[in-house]
Amino acid sequence: MDERAELLKTSGLTVRFFQAQGLRRTTVVPVNQVSLSIGAGEILGLVGESGSGKTTLGRTLAGMIVASQGRLWFNGRDVTRLGRRALRQYWTEVQMIFQDVYNALNPVYTVEQQLSFPISRHAVGKDPDQELERLLHLTGLTPSSLIRRRLPHELSGGQRQRVAIVRALASRPRLLVADEPVSMLDVSLRAEILQLLADLRQALGLSLVYITHDLPSAIAICDRIIVMYGGRLIESAPAGDLVKTARHPYTARLLLAATFDAMSAESRPKPDRQASGSILQPSYRGCPYAPRCPAVTDICVETVPDWIHVDDGHVVACHAVASGRLGAGLPAREKSPG
């Protein structure tokens, strides 16, 4: 598929959470049998339903959660279960940008104080102060002299988000797991920041896992996009192909919903029934999308669909695609007005 060297690989990665609910203890499996690989310098998009396990998967890749099953390799080394020292070593190579920007910065430190430690630690042979200045400018945090002295509560949501991005970049990771890194930025700033990430990939060979709900930006910067639903990966394709030839019914639905303007009232799909809480439970068998899928058949509720290779680098897990009932392409879409 790609001649890039592999940086990170997982096989059958599974995460379980136990939740005390009154006297009962329930188990959720937000990451279920996930196998994927990320090349050095690759930008991998991770999209999917809210609550489908993207954050949990991202945290597991970053070594913050220990998988209950499966394996995780980084640079050829098994990092599934590391000791504390080895983990600290791993963490110098992996960084995470957190989804919750209001929790991501330490409330008691100014922007400069937050950033000075990672910068001075990693900016070898550079003036840390200049490096900080440069990063603040690159992310539009100007006037930097003012922003530096601000405490987190004196920043707007989008400004906090950018400080968190700077902190992650300052550590010069080889792998960056960015969980909704630009969710609070307008298109213009968003474009600049994503361009910055793409440039870093060129310059430093940074690999990026870009978790997002913003499909257009994912399609713009990612090499490959993986779609997640109910804790499982359901489709993976080169970014450009996904828009044109999405095969999984959920992906098609997602793409359709993302094109706001293009839809008249009648063509809007009927709302889904109430979100089903059971698909993340260990007892659930079958395709995670089955409770909502318009193309569902008997086999769908009984067995998890296997991966089917549909095109070059394009795989999908759906029984209907396997049996040829679902062809390529999206439902007809109108052109959007400029």
């Binding site: 298109v187 213009s188 968003r190 474009a191 994503l194 450009g240 828009v243 052109k335 959007s336 400029g338």
Partner: peptide, 15 residues
């Protein structure tokens, strides 16, 4: 700078 859906590869533009 709004992304357009009817192109092959989105260009991200800013102000």
């Amino acid at each position: 700078s709004l992304p357009e859906w009817n192109v092959d590869r989105f260009q991200m533009r800013g102000i």
